[in-house]
């Protein structure tokens, strides 16, 4: 479970162009559910996801992770909720790498290297043997039906294939939580539907999934558990769909 209390994120503090992306958000996100953050662009949903995903730190407020079920190297007692707010970047990164997987609006694949290498990249720095990582990566690529492209450079992939490679990359470290930011923005309806099917599969596997989107295909989908509606950095509406 993730709890946020009074979380605020401001940019360019004290300067004329100061703006607050997220204002005083308090929220609880239970595990093994699909939660959609809905709202127009600039409503703060992406910023909120970067805060939860340990990519940036809130200006004020607290974020805690409970019952991760994954050992974190420096955490002595796993039963105690992990406060991620004041952690140095080094540790935020360790958490991000082991607990979160990311799917971005653009697929954000690195061009010039193969599909397989792209999927393996998040695991390079954890000190695992690359042969072992490659084995897992191939399994994932197979799962998403793109294994035949494993040795090709990513430039040759179609939009849908690139999306699936990006999902495979998000899953390489076997994270408990998947964060997807506008995942269907560049996909047509059919591919978007396919994406939601993948999401439902991930949910079946016991993953928690957080999606920021203003695409009806996403937030009207039957697999969604909860919709959080945002505007101007605050939560307008928070309702369970089930």
């Amino acid at each position: 479970m993730i709890t946020l209390s009074g979380v605020t994120k401001a940019f360019s503090c004290g300067k004329p162009n100061e703006f607050t992306a997220v204002t005083n958000v308090t929220l609880e996100i239970p595990p093994r559910q699909v939660t959609v953050f809905k709202g127009p662009s600039g409503s703060g949903k992406t910023s909120l996801l970067t805060l939860i995903g340990c990519m940036s730190r809130p200006t004020s407020g607290r974020i805690q992770l409970h019952g991760l079920g994954v050992p974190i190297p420096f955490q002595e007692d796993t039963a105690v909720p992990l406060e991620i707010t004041g952690l140095p970047e080094r540790f935020l990164t360790i958490i991000r790498r082991s607990i979160f997987g990311f799917v971005f609006q653009q697929c954000n694949l690195i061009t010039g290297i193969s599909v397989l290498e792209n999927v393996m990249l998040p695991a390079y720095t954890s000190g695992e043997r690359l042969s072992e990582v490659a084995r897992r990566a191939l399994l994932l690529l197979e799962q998403f039906g793109v294994a035949r492209h494993a040795r090709q450079p990513v430039e040759l992939l179609s939009g849908g294939e690139a999306q699936r490679v990006a999902i495979a990359r998000a899953l390489i470290n076997n994270p408990a939580i998947i964060i997807a930011d506008e995942p269907t923005a560049h996909l047509d309806s059919k591919l978007s539907q396919e994406f939601m099917e993948i999401v439902s599969g991930l949910k079946r596997d016991g993953k928690s999934i957080l999606i920021a989107s203003h695409d009806p295909i996403v937030f009207d989908s039957g697999i969604i558990d909860r919709v959080v509606e945002m505007r101007d950095g605050t939560i307008l509406d928070d309702r369970s769909v089930r």
């Binding site: 940019f11 360019s12 503090c13 730190r57 809130p58 200006t59 004020s60 004041g86 140095p88 970047e89």
Partner: peptide, 13 residues
């Protein structure tokens, strides 16, 4: 100031 999430603190880090 480790308690601060300000941009200055991030820069120092």
């Amino acid at each position: 100031d480790p308690a601060s999430g300000s941009e200055e603190q991030l820069e120092l880090e």
